[in-house]
């Protein structure tokens, strides 16, 4: 019997090792590919100014294209250049410390190095013009509650193909690979 034991326990160990490996890899893969993954796995974002979307969109009733100027004309919506901020903030509008920093940046003509928050893989062709102007899809459909945020999110938000496909199927538009991938 004693001679049998190693041969019995060996497959068990292998099985456990395999199961552990499988679980670890699937968990890892899931974390990376679904739901954008847990926050700690997504790249951190540090914006040059702690922009308050809620203040501008809700309180001041500004349209998205006031700052994201190419959202209706280009594939890329555009992150505002310092000149666009200067349109209102050449003189301080409020009392916040963050605005003081902005006014200083405007005076020094420091370029605003905004970091793109919503990211797509490089093999995707996405056009804001087509979705915003032609399909008339509200910004919140993909960008969620960003308009209600008071400070910039700290992590990148990943956009996922399953959400694109769900909408494309609902609206009966092309789901061909070639329609979006390049």
């Amino acid at each position: 019997m004693g001679a049998d034991e190693p041969s019995k326990s060996f497959p068990l160990k292998v099985g456990v090792a395999f199961a552990a490996f499988f679980l670890a890899t699937t968990a890892g893969m899931t974390a990376l590919s679904l739901g954008g993954g847990p926050a700690f796995l997504r790249p951190a974002v540090r914006q040059p100014i702690a922009f308050n979307h809620l203040k501008h969109v809700k309180d001041l009733d500004l349209a998205c294209n006031t700052c994201h100027v190419t959202v209706e004309t280009e594939t890329f919506s555009g992150l505002p250049a310092v000149e666009i901020c200067a349109g209102c903030h050449a003189e301080p509008q409020g009392t916040s410390a963050e605005e003081k920093r902005l006014v200083k940046m405007i005076q020094d003509q420091t370029p605003l190095a905004w970091v793109s928050l919503f990211r797509q893989p490089p093999h995707v062709f996405y056009s804001h013009r087509r979705h915003v102007v032609v399909a008339k899809i509200p910004c919140a459909e993909c960008h969620g509650g960003i308009a209600d945020s008071t400070s910039p999110p700290l992590r990148v938000r990943k956009l996922e193909m399953k959400d694109c496909l769900a909408c494309h199927e609902r609206k009966k538009v092309s789901t061909d690979c070639t329609a979006c991938h390049r």
């Binding site: 062709f125 056009s127 087509r130």
Partner: peptide
Amino acid sequence: CSFCHHRLQRAKDKAQA
């Protein structure tokens, strides 16, 4: 060869706009 299908995406985008 993809028949440059990325050019079709651009062309469709422009025509639709």
